[in-house]
Design a binder for these strands. Sequence first.
DNA 1: CTGAAAGCGCTAACAG
DNA 2: CTGTTAGCGCTTTCAG
Lengths: 339, 339
Amino acid sequence: MVTIYDIAKETGFSPATVSKALNNYSGVNKKTYERILGAARDMGYTANANARSLVTKKSWLIGVLFSDDVDTGISHPHFSGILQSFQSSVGSKGYDVIFVNKVLGDKKVSFYEHCMLRRVDGVMIAASKKYTSEVQSVVDSKLKLVSVEMPYPGKHTIICDNEMGSLQALEHLYFLGHRKIAHIAAPLFSTAGMERYSAYRKFLEDKGLEYKPHYVVEAPSYTHESGWMAIEKMISQCWNDMPTAVFVAYDELACSAIAYLQQRGFRIPKDFSIIGFDDLEIASFTSPPLSTIRQDRVTIGELAADRLIRLIEGKPGEEPKEMRIPTSLVIRGTCARIE
Amino acid sequence: MVTIYDIAKETGFSPATVSKALNNYSGVNKKTYERILGAARDMGYTANANARSLVTKKSWLIGVLFSDDVDTGISHPHFSGILQSFQSSVGSKGYDVIFVNKVLGDKKVSFYEHCMLRRVDGVMIAASKKYTSEVQSVVDSKLKLVSVEMPYPGKHTIICDNEMGSLQALEHLYFLGHRKIAHIAAPLFSTAGMERYSAYRKFLEDKGLEYKPHYVVEAPSYTHESGWMAIEKMISQCWNDMPTAVFVAYDELACSAIAYLQQRGFRIPKDFSIIGFDDLEIASFTSPPLSTIRQDRVTIGELAADRLIRLIEGKPGEEPKEMRIPTSLVIRGTCARIE
DNA sequence: CTGAAAGCGCTAACAG
DNA sequence: CTGTTAGCGCTTTCAG
């Protein structure tokens, strides 16, 4: 492995000068600069980030923290969309992303310890569950952080405007003449689940519609099966008072609901109008394609990256606050005017 | 930031002993061990991975290399499934994963340079395109590596058995009585695209079926739109000699094809039987749900992790070779017996 | 079982 | 403009 000492020896300059040249410092003679860079290239030199971080106390590493469970795994389409955008944004500023896990080797290491071990410059939190002590320990620490799935007081939070989105969905249904609107909620321990449910309640109240407990089912998780169970339960408990439309808090649950209803012989949107939330890729592929609320994952990722880097680099940034990213209504084929 | 020197001072032992205790070395008195660990905990000590890596020359970092384009981005469902499994496997052995990009800060850094800068212990390559010099430079280097999307001679490759899968799909169609089988190929510059296409040709030959050029369309990319264009082209060029079934090399393309055909008034599977490849999540949500070939992403990720770590740790491992992971046929609703 | 000393590769004053 | 010196925090011989 070639070091700056090797280059120093080769070119006759001191390690210090070599370091300066390699880092594009101002006060270096053009000739020596070129001599050094030439030698570095010829000798196949690459800087050692570990050594550099040790002295500069900056790792150029950002930890991404997410729960290990299904909710926000890497392969979760919503989260991976945000991650993709976040990763490429911070990448363009020179930062690498590492995943922060609870498990590291045989030892179980806490999220916080993992972040410290790697001396990350900042953390992006994408955990969706209510305060767990594990996550809380990094929130309470001095680590710079942004959050993208749930708000933490006093911290930058870039999160979708769940109320706005829910209202867009509900207003759309209302506009189409629906008054008997049911709701399949996402797990209420998650921010998204809870906020969308609250917006549903608020909407009913604002419109003077009666809240019927049997019109609401909470899906136990964000999965396919969960959606299936939820709609099944809903149909059975609404048998004597069927809704005409259902606002489903998550596209994947909505897709399962459609599949279930169609299998039971109901027609979508003739018998039931369905509207989802998130605009996952699958929403385009159901038949009919799912009307839903789009979340701007690219913007969320970019903004989170921007805020975090400002925090890290001490740039004048806005005060840490909760930013709500607007949603938009995507009309496809699962909502019909009531007859 | 508390260091081992602080602990040494606090406990009265030397930094060397502290280090040994913290790392569970054998020759340490039980009493001192406990004293040191207690102090470390009380003082909120966390090791500095950068300093450690500098001396041990081991970073516990694994680079994941993928093309920046749509094909294998983090949010690509196939890739993210493998990544998820890979990440959690290596994580349990103490390794962290970083994404290796071409862009890092303002400078464009090559994949290889990025790996070197971070002194990664190994690399997982998930690029699907034919040899690009960028990727090639890391393949030709001394970096330990495994590949999961395309084979590199002399390197561990864990990849799905595309021929097996294609044959399963084709035999299924054949069994259902189809003889006029078309093929929508995935981009032929990718391993999967090429191998599945080759298997299609081989199958025709083995069955003594005629190869008709108008029965084959190559989708320009792995996207929704691309699938739409491909099926459109196919229908137009087959107008006088329609196939009864089409083997589509990638689920997402297949889903678009279904949507297009249905919109044109064709019935699936009555007018056309469709079978996909990969068993992405969306395959369950089309209507009818898509019959397809399942790839075992979990196994691929685990095996890749295992092989790479063996390589890194110099454990007795098998010779680097190409491992083909078996596929399985998933029968759902898009293939029917010909009438 | 414990400690002294050296050094991993690099940067950051501070001189010259 | 260039070099000297001193660490960053940790591990690793090698003595004791």
